[in-house]
Design a protein around this nucleic acid. Structure first.
Lengths: 232, 232
DNA sequence: TGACATTAATCAATCGTTTGATTAAAAAGG
DNA sequence: CCTTTTTAATCAAACGATTGATTAATGTCA
Protein backbone atom coordinates (compact mmCIF):
# COMPACT_ATOMS: atom_id res chain seq x y z
CA UNK A 1 0.00 0.00 0.00
CA UNK A 2 2.92 2.26 0.71
CA UNK A 3 5.07 1.36 -2.23
CA UNK A 4 5.02 3.21 -5.47
CA UNK A 5 4.40 1.22 -8.60
CA UNK A 6 7.44 0.27 -10.67
CA UNK A 7 5.51 -1.51 -13.33
CA UNK A 8 5.76 -1.42 -17.09
CA UNK A 9 8.76 -0.18 -19.03
CA UNK A 10 8.02 3.24 -20.46
CA UNK A 11 7.53 5.27 -17.26
CA UNK A 12 9.08 8.53 -16.23
CA UNK A 13 11.94 7.59 -13.89
CA UNK A 14 12.43 11.12 -12.54
CA UNK A 15 10.56 12.12 -9.41
CA UNK A 16 6.91 11.36 -9.70
CA UNK A 17 4.52 13.62 -7.89
CA UNK A 18 4.33 11.09 -5.08
CA UNK A 19 8.10 11.02 -4.75
CA UNK A 20 8.17 14.78 -4.47
CA UNK A 21 5.62 14.69 -1.69
CA UNK A 22 7.60 12.06 0.17
CA UNK A 23 10.90 13.92 0.05
CA UNK A 24 9.20 17.21 0.89
CA UNK A 25 7.70 15.60 3.98
CA UNK A 26 11.04 14.08 5.01
CA UNK A 27 12.89 17.36 4.57
CA UNK A 28 10.30 19.28 6.54
CA UNK A 29 10.15 16.65 9.26
CA UNK A 30 13.92 16.48 9.58
CA UNK A 31 14.08 20.22 9.94
CA UNK A 32 11.28 20.43 12.50
CA UNK A 33 12.30 17.33 14.45
CA UNK A 34 15.81 18.69 14.77
CA UNK A 35 14.59 22.13 15.71
CA UNK A 36 11.75 21.39 18.09
CA UNK A 37 12.11 17.71 18.83
CA UNK A 38 9.88 14.82 17.85
CA UNK A 39 7.23 15.40 20.49
CA UNK A 40 7.44 19.14 20.03
CA UNK A 41 6.58 18.87 16.37
CA UNK A 42 3.01 18.34 15.21
CA UNK A 43 2.07 16.49 12.07
CA UNK A 44 0.15 19.55 11.01
CA UNK A 45 3.28 21.67 11.14
CA UNK A 46 5.14 19.10 9.07
CA UNK A 47 2.42 18.91 6.45
CA UNK A 48 2.17 22.68 6.28
CA UNK A 49 5.93 23.09 5.90
CA UNK A 50 5.96 20.49 3.14
CA UNK A 51 2.91 21.92 1.41
CA UNK A 52 1.28 18.55 1.76
CA UNK A 53 -1.84 17.20 3.35
CA UNK A 54 -1.88 15.79 6.86
CA UNK A 55 -3.16 12.50 5.60
CA UNK A 56 -0.13 12.13 3.36
CA UNK A 57 1.99 11.25 6.38
CA UNK A 58 -0.10 8.24 7.25
CA UNK A 59 -0.45 7.30 3.62
CA UNK A 60 3.23 7.39 2.71
CA UNK A 61 4.92 6.49 5.99
CA UNK A 62 2.26 4.81 8.06
CA UNK A 63 2.34 7.57 10.65
CA UNK A 64 4.54 10.01 12.47
CA UNK A 65 6.84 7.26 13.71
CA UNK A 66 7.35 5.95 10.22
CA UNK A 67 8.27 9.43 9.08
CA UNK A 68 10.95 9.56 11.75
CA UNK A 69 12.40 6.32 10.47
CA UNK A 70 12.37 7.68 6.94
CA UNK A 71 14.30 10.70 8.21
CA UNK A 72 16.92 8.35 9.61
CA UNK A 73 17.25 6.68 6.24
CA UNK A 74 17.64 10.04 4.56
CA UNK A 75 20.39 10.97 7.02
CA UNK A 76 22.28 7.75 6.40
CA UNK A 77 22.18 8.30 2.65
CA UNK A 78 23.28 11.92 2.99
CA UNK A 79 26.19 11.23 5.32
CA UNK A 80 27.42 8.29 3.30
CA UNK A 81 27.34 10.47 0.21
CA UNK A 82 29.29 13.44 1.60
CA UNK A 83 31.53 11.63 4.10
CA UNK A 84 32.30 8.58 2.03
CA UNK A 85 35.01 10.13 -0.18
CA UNK A 86 36.94 11.67 2.72
CA UNK A 87 36.94 8.40 4.61
CA UNK A 88 37.97 6.29 1.64
CA UNK A 89 40.88 3.93 1.92
CA UNK A 90 43.23 6.46 0.31
CA UNK A 91 45.11 3.61 -1.37
CA UNK A 92 47.37 3.00 1.66
CA UNK A 93 50.69 4.42 0.46
CA UNK A 94 52.79 1.89 2.33
CA UNK A 95 53.97 0.78 5.72
CA UNK A 96 56.48 2.46 8.00
CA UNK A 97 56.86 6.15 8.70
CA UNK A 98 55.70 7.09 5.23
CA UNK A 99 52.41 5.35 5.88
CA UNK A 100 52.08 6.86 9.32
CA UNK A 101 52.56 10.37 8.01
CA UNK A 102 50.03 9.77 5.28
CA UNK A 103 47.53 8.44 7.77
CA UNK A 104 48.06 11.47 9.96
CA UNK A 105 47.51 13.75 7.00
CA UNK A 106 44.25 11.96 6.31
CA UNK A 107 43.22 12.48 9.91
CA UNK A 108 43.91 16.19 9.56
CA UNK A 109 41.75 16.33 6.47
CA UNK A 110 38.94 14.41 8.13
CA UNK A 111 39.07 16.63 11.21
CA UNK A 112 38.77 19.73 9.09
CA UNK A 113 35.84 18.23 7.22
CA UNK A 114 34.15 17.10 10.41
CA UNK A 115 34.41 20.46 12.13
CA UNK A 116 33.27 22.27 9.03
CA UNK A 117 30.26 20.04 8.70
CA UNK A 118 29.22 19.29 12.26
CA UNK A 119 29.99 22.65 13.81
CA UNK A 120 29.69 25.26 11.10
CA UNK A 121 27.48 24.01 8.30
CA UNK A 122 24.05 25.60 8.79
CA UNK A 123 22.15 23.21 6.53
CA UNK A 124 23.68 20.29 8.40
CA UNK A 125 22.54 21.63 11.74
CA UNK A 126 19.17 19.97 11.44
CA UNK A 127 20.77 16.60 10.79
CA UNK A 128 23.11 16.92 13.75
CA UNK A 129 20.31 18.03 15.99
CA UNK A 130 18.16 15.12 14.88
CA UNK A 131 20.93 12.65 15.61
CA UNK A 132 21.68 14.19 18.97
CA UNK A 133 18.08 13.84 19.99
CA UNK A 134 18.07 10.25 18.85
CA UNK A 135 21.21 9.59 20.86
CA UNK A 136 19.67 10.89 24.04
CA UNK A 137 16.40 9.09 23.37
CA UNK A 138 17.06 6.08 21.16
CA UNK A 139 14.38 4.72 18.88
CA UNK A 140 14.44 2.45 15.86
CA UNK A 141 15.73 5.45 13.93
CA UNK A 142 18.96 5.33 15.92
CA UNK A 143 19.49 1.71 14.98
CA UNK A 144 19.53 2.70 11.33
CA UNK A 145 21.82 5.67 11.94
CA UNK A 146 24.21 3.68 14.10
CA UNK A 147 24.50 0.87 11.60
CA UNK A 148 24.79 3.22 8.64
CA UNK A 149 26.93 6.01 10.07
CA UNK A 150 28.33 5.60 13.57
CA UNK A 151 29.66 2.10 13.31
CA UNK A 152 31.38 2.33 9.91
CA UNK A 153 32.78 5.82 10.53
CA UNK A 154 34.16 4.98 13.95
CA UNK A 155 35.63 1.73 12.70
CA UNK A 156 37.29 3.51 9.80
CA UNK A 157 38.73 6.18 12.08
CA UNK A 158 40.12 3.49 14.33
CA UNK A 159 41.86 1.90 11.36
CA UNK A 160 43.38 5.20 10.28
CA UNK A 161 44.45 6.00 13.83
CA UNK A 162 46.07 2.59 14.03
CA UNK A 163 47.93 3.32 10.82
CA UNK A 164 49.12 6.62 12.24
CA UNK A 165 50.29 5.31 15.60
CA UNK A 166 51.09 1.64 15.18
CA UNK A 167 48.45 0.74 17.75
CA UNK A 168 45.93 -2.02 17.22
CA UNK A 169 42.83 -0.73 15.43
CA UNK A 170 40.22 -2.61 17.42
CA UNK A 171 41.91 -2.42 20.79
CA UNK A 172 39.69 -1.08 23.55
CA UNK A 173 42.08 1.78 24.12
CA UNK A 174 42.06 2.79 20.47
CA UNK A 175 38.30 2.77 20.30
CA UNK A 176 38.03 4.94 23.40
CA UNK A 177 40.72 7.27 22.07
CA UNK A 178 38.83 7.79 18.84
CA UNK A 179 35.66 8.52 20.78
CA UNK A 180 37.53 11.13 22.78
CA UNK A 181 38.75 12.75 19.58
CA UNK A 182 35.27 12.78 18.10
CA UNK A 183 34.04 14.26 21.37
CA UNK A 184 36.28 17.26 20.96
CA UNK A 185 34.59 18.02 17.67
CA UNK A 186 31.03 17.18 18.55
CA UNK A 187 30.97 19.16 21.77
CA UNK A 188 31.24 22.39 19.86
CA UNK A 189 27.86 21.53 18.39
CA UNK A 190 26.23 20.09 21.52
CA UNK A 191 27.51 22.88 23.71
CA UNK A 192 27.08 25.40 20.92
CA UNK A 193 25.03 27.76 23.04
CA UNK A 194 27.55 27.70 25.88
CA UNK A 195 30.46 28.12 23.47
CA UNK A 196 28.85 31.13 21.81
CA UNK A 197 28.28 32.86 25.12
CA UNK A 198 31.68 32.09 26.58
CA UNK A 199 33.55 33.03 23.42
CA UNK A 200 31.49 36.12 22.81
CA UNK A 201 30.63 34.85 19.34
CA UNK A 202 27.31 35.50 17.67
CA UNK A 203 27.61 32.44 15.45
CA UNK A 204 30.09 29.80 14.36
CA UNK A 205 31.05 30.48 10.78
CA UNK A 206 34.13 29.74 8.73
CA UNK A 207 36.36 31.97 10.82
CA UNK A 208 35.38 30.44 14.12
CA UNK A 209 35.43 26.91 12.68
CA UNK A 210 39.03 27.50 11.58
CA UNK A 211 40.04 28.45 15.13
CA UNK A 212 38.34 25.36 16.50
CA UNK A 213 39.96 23.15 13.88
CA UNK A 214 43.35 24.60 14.74
CA UNK A 215 43.06 23.82 18.42
CA UNK A 216 41.65 20.33 17.91
CA UNK A 217 44.22 19.44 15.27
CA UNK A 218 46.97 20.52 17.62
CA UNK A 219 45.45 18.39 20.36
CA UNK A 220 45.21 15.31 18.18
CA UNK A 221 48.79 15.65 17.03
CA UNK A 222 49.90 15.95 20.64
CA UNK A 223 47.96 12.84 21.57
CA UNK A 224 49.40 10.92 18.66
CA UNK A 225 52.89 11.94 19.69
CA UNK A 226 52.32 10.73 23.23
CA UNK A 227 50.88 7.41 22.10
CA UNK A 228 53.72 6.83 19.68
CA UNK A 229 56.44 7.89 22.12
CA UNK A 230 55.00 5.60 24.75
CA UNK A 231 56.47 2.46 23.20
CA UNK A 232 60.01 3.65 23.85
CA UNK B 1 1.13 33.57 44.80
CA UNK B 2 4.20 31.51 44.15
CA UNK B 3 6.24 32.23 47.22
CA UNK B 4 6.20 30.11 50.29
CA UNK B 5 5.61 31.76 53.62
CA UNK B 6 8.62 32.52 55.78
CA UNK B 7 6.53 34.01 58.51
CA UNK B 8 6.61 33.87 62.25
CA UNK B 9 9.59 32.75 64.28
CA UNK B 10 8.64 29.48 65.89
CA UNK B 11 8.17 27.39 62.77
CA UNK B 12 9.67 24.04 62.06
CA UNK B 13 12.70 24.75 59.91
CA UNK B 14 12.70 21.27 58.50
CA UNK B 15 10.60 20.67 55.42
CA UNK B 16 7.05 21.80 55.84
CA UNK B 17 4.45 19.82 53.96
CA UNK B 18 4.43 22.42 51.21
CA UNK B 19 8.19 22.32 50.92
CA UNK B 20 8.06 18.56 50.58
CA UNK B 21 5.55 18.87 47.77
CA UNK B 22 7.71 21.42 46.01
CA UNK B 23 10.89 19.36 46.12
CA UNK B 24 9.02 16.20 45.19
CA UNK B 25 7.64 17.96 42.13
CA UNK B 26 11.06 19.28 41.16
CA UNK B 27 12.72 15.89 41.56
CA UNK B 28 10.02 14.16 39.56
CA UNK B 29 10.05 16.84 36.87
CA UNK B 30 13.83 16.78 36.59
CA UNK B 31 13.76 13.04 36.18
CA UNK B 32 10.98 13.02 33.60
CA UNK B 33 12.19 16.08 31.70
CA UNK B 34 15.60 14.50 31.39
CA UNK B 35 14.19 11.16 30.40
CA UNK B 36 11.41 12.10 27.99
CA UNK B 37 11.99 15.76 27.32
CA UNK B 38 9.94 18.76 28.29
CA UNK B 39 7.28 18.39 25.62
CA UNK B 40 7.24 14.65 26.04
CA UNK B 41 6.37 14.92 29.70
CA UNK B 42 2.84 15.68 30.84
CA UNK B 43 2.01 17.55 34.01
CA UNK B 44 -0.10 14.59 35.01
CA UNK B 45 2.88 12.27 34.88
CA UNK B 46 4.90 14.69 36.98
CA UNK B 47 2.18 15.02 39.58
CA UNK B 48 1.69 11.28 39.72
CA UNK B 49 5.41 10.61 40.13
CA UNK B 50 5.58 13.19 42.91
CA UNK B 51 2.42 11.92 44.59
CA UNK B 52 0.98 15.38 44.25
CA UNK B 53 -2.02 16.91 42.60
CA UNK B 54 -1.93 18.41 39.13
CA UNK B 55 -3.03 21.74 40.48
CA UNK B 56 0.02 21.87 42.75
CA UNK B 57 2.23 22.66 39.77
CA UNK B 58 0.33 25.80 38.93
CA UNK B 59 0.00 26.68 42.58
CA UNK B 60 3.67 26.38 43.50
CA UNK B 61 5.41 27.23 40.25
CA UNK B 62 2.84 29.10 38.21
CA UNK B 63 2.79 26.38 35.57
CA UNK B 64 4.86 23.86 33.71
CA UNK B 65 7.32 26.46 32.52
CA UNK B 66 7.91 27.71 36.05
CA UNK B 67 8.62 24.16 37.12
CA UNK B 68 11.30 23.89 34.46
CA UNK B 69 12.93 27.04 35.80
CA UNK B 70 12.80 25.62 39.31
CA UNK B 71 14.56 22.51 38.02
CA UNK B 72 17.31 24.71 36.66
CA UNK B 73 17.71 26.33 40.05
CA UNK B 74 17.89 22.93 41.70
CA UNK B 75 20.60 21.87 39.26
CA UNK B 76 22.67 24.95 39.93
CA UNK B 77 22.50 24.38 43.68
CA UNK B 78 23.37 20.71 43.32
CA UNK B 79 26.35 21.22 41.04
CA UNK B 80 27.74 24.07 43.09
CA UNK B 81 27.49 21.89 46.16
CA UNK B 82 29.26 18.82 44.78
CA UNK B 83 31.63 20.46 42.32
CA UNK B 84 32.57 23.47 44.40
CA UNK B 85 35.15 21.77 46.65
CA UNK B 86 37.01 20.11 43.79
CA UNK B 87 37.22 23.38 41.88
CA UNK B 88 38.31 25.42 44.88
CA UNK B 89 41.37 27.62 44.64
CA UNK B 90 43.54 24.93 46.28
CA UNK B 91 45.57 27.67 47.99
CA UNK B 92 47.91 28.09 44.99
CA UNK B 93 51.12 26.49 46.25
CA UNK B 94 53.37 28.87 44.39
CA UNK B 95 54.66 29.90 41.03
CA UNK B 96 57.09 28.06 38.77
CA UNK B 97 57.26 24.36 38.08
CA UNK B 98 56.01 23.48 41.53
CA UNK B 99 52.85 25.44 40.83
CA UNK B 100 52.47 23.94 37.40
CA UNK B 101 52.71 20.41 38.72
CA UNK B 102 50.19 21.18 41.42
CA UNK B 103 47.80 22.68 38.89
CA UNK B 104 48.17 19.61 36.69
CA UNK B 105 47.43 17.37 39.66
CA UNK B 106 44.29 19.35 40.30
CA UNK B 107 43.26 18.92 36.68
CA UNK B 108 43.71 15.17 37.03
CA UNK B 109 41.51 15.17 40.10
CA UNK B 110 38.86 17.27 38.40
CA UNK B 111 38.89 15.04 35.33
CA UNK B 112 38.35 11.98 37.44
CA UNK B 113 35.49 13.66 39.27
CA UNK B 114 33.93 14.90 36.04
CA UNK B 115 34.00 11.53 34.33
CA UNK B 116 32.71 9.80 37.42
CA UNK B 117 29.84 12.22 37.71
CA UNK B 118 28.91 13.04 34.12
CA UNK B 119 29.48 9.64 32.57
CA UNK B 120 28.99 7.05 35.26
CA UNK B 121 26.80 8.45 38.03
CA UNK B 122 23.29 7.10 37.45
CA UNK B 123 21.51 9.59 39.67
CA UNK B 124 23.26 12.41 37.85
CA UNK B 125 22.10 11.17 34.49
CA UNK B 126 18.84 12.99 34.75
CA UNK B 127 20.64 16.26 35.44
CA UNK B 128 22.97 15.82 32.50
CA UNK B 129 20.12 14.89 30.22
CA UNK B 130 18.15 17.92 31.34
CA UNK B 131 21.09 20.23 30.66
CA UNK B 132 21.76 18.65 27.28
CA UNK B 133 18.20 19.24 26.23
CA UNK B 134 18.41 22.82 27.40
CA UNK B 135 21.62 23.28 25.44
CA UNK B 136 20.01 22.13 22.23
CA UNK B 137 16.86 24.12 22.87
CA UNK B 138 17.70 27.04 25.12
CA UNK B 139 15.09 28.58 27.38
CA UNK B 140 15.27 30.80 30.42
CA UNK B 141 16.34 27.72 32.34
CA UNK B 142 19.60 27.63 30.39
CA UNK B 143 20.36 31.22 31.35
CA UNK B 144 20.29 30.21 34.98
CA UNK B 145 22.39 27.10 34.38
CA UNK B 146 24.93 28.94 32.27
CA UNK B 147 25.38 31.72 34.79
CA UNK B 148 25.46 29.33 37.74
CA UNK B 149 27.43 26.42 36.32
CA UNK B 150 28.89 26.75 32.83
CA UNK B 151 30.45 30.15 33.13
CA UNK B 152 32.11 29.80 36.55
CA UNK B 153 33.29 26.23 35.94
CA UNK B 154 34.76 26.98 32.54
CA UNK B 155 36.41 30.14 33.81
CA UNK B 156 37.92 28.25 36.71
CA UNK B 157 39.22 25.50 34.46
CA UNK B 158 40.81 28.09 32.22
CA UNK B 159 42.60 29.56 35.23
CA UNK B 160 43.89 26.17 36.32
CA UNK B 161 44.94 25.30 32.77
CA UNK B 162 46.80 28.60 32.60
CA UNK B 163 48.57 27.76 35.84
CA UNK B 164 49.56 24.37 34.43
CA UNK B 165 50.86 25.62 31.09
CA UNK B 166 51.88 29.22 31.52
CA UNK B 167 49.34 30.30 28.92
CA UNK B 168 46.99 33.20 29.42
CA UNK B 169 43.80 32.14 31.17
CA UNK B 170 41.33 34.17 29.15
CA UNK B 171 43.05 33.88 25.79
CA UNK B 172 40.78 32.69 23.01
CA UNK B 173 43.00 29.67 22.45
CA UNK B 174 42.86 28.68 26.10
CA UNK B 175 39.09 28.93 26.23
CA UNK B 176 38.74 26.78 23.13
CA UNK B 177 41.27 24.29 24.49
CA UNK B 178 39.29 23.88 27.70
CA UNK B 179 36.11 23.38 25.70
CA UNK B 180 37.84 20.64 23.72
CA UNK B 181 38.91 18.96 26.95
CA UNK B 182 35.41 19.15 28.37
CA UNK B 183 34.11 17.75 25.10
CA UNK B 184 36.16 14.60 25.53
CA UNK B 185 34.39 13.96 28.80
CA UNK B 186 30.90 15.04 27.86
CA UNK B 187 30.76 13.05 24.64
CA UNK B 188 30.81 9.82 26.57
CA UNK B 189 27.48 10.91 27.98
CA UNK B 190 25.98 12.43 24.83
CA UNK B 191 27.10 9.56 22.68
CA UNK B 192 26.47 7.08 25.44
CA UNK B 193 24.29 4.85 23.31
CA UNK B 194 26.85 4.75 20.50
CA UNK B 195 29.70 4.14 22.94
CA UNK B 196 27.88 1.26 24.59
CA UNK B 197 27.23 -0.45 21.28
CA UNK B 198 30.69 0.11 19.86
CA UNK B 199 32.46 -0.96 23.05
CA UNK B 200 30.19 -3.91 23.63
CA UNK B 201 29.38 -2.58 27.08
CA UNK B 202 26.01 -3.00 28.71
CA UNK B 203 26.48 0.02 30.94
CA UNK B 204 29.10 2.51 32.04
CA UNK B 205 30.00 1.77 35.66
CA UNK B 206 33.08 2.30 37.73
CA UNK B 207 35.20 -0.07 35.66
CA UNK B 208 34.33 1.53 32.35
CA UNK B 209 34.61 5.04 33.81
CA UNK B 210 38.14 4.23 34.93
CA UNK B 211 39.13 3.20 31.41
CA UNK B 212 37.66 6.39 30.02
CA UNK B 213 39.38 8.50 32.66
CA UNK B 214 42.68 6.84 31.85
CA UNK B 215 42.48 7.63 28.15
CA UNK B 216 41.29 11.21 28.65
CA UNK B 217 43.89 11.92 31.32
CA UNK B 218 46.58 10.65 29.00
CA UNK B 219 45.23 12.88 26.25
CA UNK B 220 45.17 15.98 28.43
CA UNK B 221 48.71 15.40 29.62
CA UNK B 222 49.84 15.03 26.02
CA UNK B 223 48.11 18.27 25.07
CA UNK B 224 49.63 20.09 28.00
CA UNK B 225 53.06 18.84 27.03
CA UNK B 226 52.62 20.08 23.48
CA UNK B 227 51.38 23.49 24.59
CA UNK B 228 54.24 23.88 27.04
CA UNK B 229 56.90 22.64 24.67
CA UNK B 230 55.64 25.00 22.00
CA UNK B 231 57.29 28.06 23.54
CA UNK B 232 60.74 26.65 22.91
C1' DT C 1 -10.80 31.75 62.91
C1' DG C 2 -8.04 32.60 58.90
C1' DA C 3 -4.38 31.99 55.73
C1' DC C 4 -2.21 28.33 53.37
C1' DA C 5 -2.46 24.03 50.83
C1' DT C 6 -4.60 20.29 48.43
C1' DT C 7 -8.16 18.14 45.87
C1' DA C 8 -11.46 16.62 42.15
C1' DA C 9 -13.72 18.33 38.31
C1' DT C 10 -13.80 20.87 34.25
C1' DC C 11 -12.10 23.96 30.52
C1' DA C 12 -10.71 25.00 25.66
C1' DA C 13 -7.04 23.69 22.74
C1' DT C 14 -4.29 20.60 20.34
C1' DC C 15 -2.61 16.12 19.51
C1' DG C 16 -2.03 11.89 15.88
C1' DT C 17 -4.90 9.30 13.32
C1' DT C 18 -8.79 7.83 10.54
C1' DT C 19 -12.37 8.38 7.32
C1' DG C 20 -14.95 8.79 2.88
C1' DA C 21 -14.98 11.48 -1.21
C1' DT C 22 -12.48 13.06 -5.21
C1' DT C 23 -9.06 13.21 -8.85
C1' DA C 24 -5.79 11.52 -12.18
C1' DA C 25 -3.56 7.97 -14.34
C1' DA C 26 -2.51 3.27 -15.60
C1' DA C 27 -4.42 -1.55 -16.77
C1' DA C 28 -7.48 -4.40 -18.85
C1' DG C 29 -10.76 -5.82 -22.37
C1' DG C 30 -12.52 -6.01 -26.85
C1' DC D 1 -8.42 2.76 -30.72
C1' DC D 2 -11.88 3.49 -27.43
C1' DT D 3 -14.19 2.11 -23.16
C1' DT D 4 -14.22 0.17 -18.69
C1' DT D 5 -12.10 -1.02 -14.46
C1' DT D 6 -8.70 -0.64 -11.06
C1' DT D 7 -5.28 1.65 -8.51
C1' DA D 8 -2.44 5.47 -6.50
C1' DA D 9 -2.68 9.84 -4.41
C1' DT D 10 -4.60 13.80 -2.27
C1' DC D 11 -7.95 16.26 0.28
C1' DA D 12 -11.19 18.30 3.90
C1' DA D 13 -13.47 16.85 7.85
C1' DA D 14 -13.94 14.69 12.02
C1' DC D 15 -12.55 11.27 15.54
C1' DG D 16 -11.25 10.13 20.43
C1' DA D 17 -7.58 11.03 23.45
C1' DT D 18 -4.58 13.96 25.86
C1' DT D 19 -2.64 18.35 26.76
C1' DG D 20 -1.79 22.52 30.36
C1' DA D 21 -4.49 25.35 32.89
C1' DT D 22 -8.26 26.80 35.81
C1' DT D 23 -11.93 26.60 39.15
C1' DA D 24 -14.57 26.04 43.33
C1' DA D 25 -14.82 23.23 47.18
C1' DT D 26 -12.46 21.03 50.89
C1' DG D 27 -8.75 20.02 54.11
C1' DT D 28 -5.06 21.43 57.29
C1' DC D 29 -2.56 23.48 60.41
C1' DA D 30 -1.01 27.56 63.62
Amino acid sequence: MNERQTSSGSREVTSSQAEQTRTALIRAALNLFGQKGFDGTSTRDIAAAANANIGSIAYHFGGKEGLRLACAGFIVETIQRIAGPAMAAAAVPGEGERGEAAAMAQIDAILQRMVGFIVAEPQAGEIVQFVLRELSHPTAALDAIYAGVFEPVHRRLCAIWAAATGEEAEAEETRLRVFAIIGQVVYFRIGREAVLRRMGWSSIGLTEAARITGVITENVHAIRGAVKGRSS
